[in-house]
């Protein structure tokens, strides 16, 4: 029944450092099913964030195509891409990236400013999203008045509020203690299982990867065979050694 939500086709990405082009992704191919929860692992610098940015439409590849839900996002202009992002993707980052001047509620409302919803509707939607992450009592708090775990929950609520099909999370628990991390991962799991969100999550933490349905391993800009779940920690260590 499930169909492919994301089709990455021969995608290459390189960054320029002065005159030298540094290849980061090389002719990468990847299919992600609708409703999947994918953990993307790999050593630092292997290109995980770069790939995630491409999937989320934050950047464009040098070659290749990315199709998401039938839409070829690599053909969109910057303007169209911004519009697409606001409707189709939710982002969660390692350092939450909330606006410190806004309350939790207002942070969650941000993406809705781009819609035609009325102020009352925006408020209601944001409140609902905060309820999903169990933080509606803290709606009026500023980020500085919240713990790291709570801030990340606000960030998830913000990613959810426009009801996108896809969530991309870059090390969402990278800055959190075990307990908060488990809370966050639990929420992501619920979003995946009960709300049908497709999630792509970059993580360094094998325990975090266990919350996902699948894991992929990246090394030097290429996807390598996914190790089975039981041997993940060992493989991660080995990969780190080879990367050094």
């Amino acid at each position: 029944m499930s169909h492919a939500l994301i089709e990455v086709c021969d995608v290459s990405k390189q960054y320029r450092r002065g005159k030298i082009a540094v290849p980061v992704l090389r002719e990468l191919n990847l299919t992600i099913e609708q409703g999947d929860f994918l953990a993307l692992m790999g050593p630092s610098g292997s290109g995980k964030t770069t790939l995630l940015n491409l999937l989320g439409g934050l950047d464009q590849p040098n070659s290749g195509t990315i199709e998401i839900d039938g839409q070829c996002i690599t053909r969109l202009s910057a303007r169209e891409l911004a519009r697409w992002r606001s409707q189709q993707v939710g982002f969660v980052f390692q350092f939450y990236n909330l606006l410190p001047i806004l309350t939790a509620q207002k942070n969650v409302e941000l993406p809705l400013l781009l819609t035609s919803l009325s102020a009352a509707q925006r408020k209601f939607r944001a409140h609902t999203a905060l309820e999903v992450v169990g933080l509606s009592e803290r709606a009026d708090h500023r980020p500085s008045e919240l713990s790291g775990g709570q801030q990340q929950r606000v960030a998830i609520a913000r990613a959810l509020v426009s009801d996108p099909a896809l969530l991309v999370c870059d090390e969402p628990t990278g800055d959190l203690d075990r307990e908060s991390a488990d809370e966050i991962l639990g929420i992501l799991q619920i979003l995946n299982e009960e709300h049908g969100k497709t999630i792509v999550m970059v993580t360094h933490d094998p325990k975090a990867a266990k919350y996902a349905r699948h894991s992929l391993f990246m090394d030097k800009g290429e996807l390598v065979a996914a190790p089975d779940r039981e041997s993940l920690p060992g493989n991660a260590e080995k990969a780190k050694e080879t990367a050094l």
Partner: peptide, 13 residues
């Protein structure tokens, strides 16, 4: 960083 976040969320340039 904040402005980049706004853009990430889909705010036009």
């Amino acid at each position: 960083g904040e402005l980049a976040v706004l853009k990430t969320l889909g705010f036009q340039d």
